[in-house]
Nucleic acid binder design. Structure first.
Lengths: 255, 255
DNA sequence: GCAAGCCTGTCAGCGACCTGTCAGTGGGCC
DNA sequence: GGCCCACTGACAGGTCGCTGACAGGCTTGC
């Protein structure tokens, strides 16, 4: 991150990309520690989290994590439960020895034993299963930090674009008075659009962010899900989701 | 391809072309690293980027890119995903090891769109498919750098000429209050005109900049698209797009 | 443990839209 | 008045996006 403050204080226009409102009490960027032994994955995560305007450091194993935690003092940790040296529980214990309250987001294989996870998240932490989508990780991290009361400038769980609202905590979506039921994928897609209002997003960007990172399919799914969303959100109303032919999709207030 | 050098060597009036407002915090020119193994292409790109007033260096492969990145410390990178030594993701990883935040614009063959672009834009990076237009590359680079908060003098995503505005993020174009719908090509043409207000642009220049670099057609398309634009922008209003017979076209405030 | 239902993603067809060619017309300039 | 340049209507071909139909898999409820 070059200079978040410059963005924050941009007079005319808010930051081009709506950076996370989450900041530490002194206004400096949130610090996140990513712990994973797969390079590809931790690179991907770092990129995505940095893009949120957060300060990211990585570690490849439990020992590194503990060390990094000690001098980096992260506000949140993304932690693969499967590490070469210690297991998730052990790392968690050691992290907590230094950093009492730090919220942790666990990464776990889908087929992993569910009850282990239950133990891990007992303290209010959370987890996502691989392969996850980056939006999901970011959203959960935000939720965790929100819960711990991270921000001075209070971060709001409710996204608003025109008369459309999406509550990231309760997953409630409504257009005006009408409550709207969305499937998981629809919800994530809408969240991504709403976190970038009035900004054209290409299908590739959407795919990279909203779909699981190992998704091998065609960009056609994006069209499909946009069409689902439209049926639920725009049908019979002034449309908010617009196609920009050859460029992507935008969401904006019905005007 | 008509004559790119004509653009580059327009010597007489250095400040004539409104250079990019993008500058590094200390006011020195933005530094861009171009990585491509095709000489023709990287020359073309270099010229176009230098013409923006940017400081350009090139590399022909991944190894060279990493090396150049290390001592050139670019503010942005243009990177062909198809390199003789490493693939795009690998180069990206190595670049990021040195330069945490550099935004990267990927170049990719059209038929390979789905092929390994996956994940590349996740960190907020972007890509264009070959054959691209130079305007597009420049525009995207500017957008990337804008987002990272590159400039001291804040660069604005909205171009303005008289009562005509064009928003590069949302793709919104309006004349006065009226919203105007443009196709992709119309949009690029208008953007090019608006980035050079009050300056006569020849058809050759327009063709070189706005159309794909391997476009084989006749300069007549430019006339055609200017005529489309006029219908949408000038019709029933004081004209802003003017023909300079034998020379080209200019856009200027309706006055 | 089985069946029903829901969710996700593939595929293919259709229609709309966009792009660029061509040719005829009109207008400016010498 | 003539020539050239520019403008624009018509058109063909292609591309892009949308959506209905469907299959497989997972979840849920009985």
């Amino acid at each position: 991150m070059t200079d978040v403050n410059a963005l924050e204080s941009a007079p005319s226009r808010p930051a081009a990309r709506p950076r996370s409102l989450l900041t530490r009490p002194d206004g400096s960027p949130v610090r996140v520690l990513v712990v994973d032994d797969e390079d590809t994955l931790s690179d991907l995560l770092s990129m995505a989290l940095r893009y949120e305007g957060w300060d990211v450091r990585t570690a490849a194993d439990g020992a590194g994590a503990v060390k990094a935690a000690r001098d980096f003092r992260p506000d949140a940790v993304v932690l693969d439960v499967m590490l070469p040296d210690f297991d998730g529980l052990e790392v968690l214990r050691r992290l907590r020895a230094d950093l009492n309250e730090v919220p942790v987001l666990f990464l776990t294989a889908r087929d992993a034993v569910e009850d282990r996870i239950a133990g891990l998240t007992a303290g209010g932490d959370d987890y996502v299963t691989k392969p996850f989508s980056l939006e999901e990780v970011v959203a959960r991290l935000r939720a965790l930090m929100r819960r711990v009361g991270m921000s001075a400038v209070r971060d709001d769980a409710v996204l608003r674009v025109g008369d459309l609202t999406l509550d990231e905590d309760s997953h409630e979506v409504r257009r005006g008075e009408a409550e709207i039921e969305l499937t998981a994928t629809e919800f994530e897609l809408l969240r991504f659009l709403m976190r970038n209002p009035k900004r054209v997003l290409s299908k590739a960007q959407i795919l990279d962010r909203v779909w699981h990172y190992d998704f091998g399919g065609q960009a056609n799914v994006v069209e499909l899900y946009v069409s689902y969303l439209r049926k639920k959100i725009d049908l019979g109303r002034t449309p908010m989701i617009h196609t920009v032919r050859g460029a992507g999709y935008v969401i904006k207030p019905a005007a």
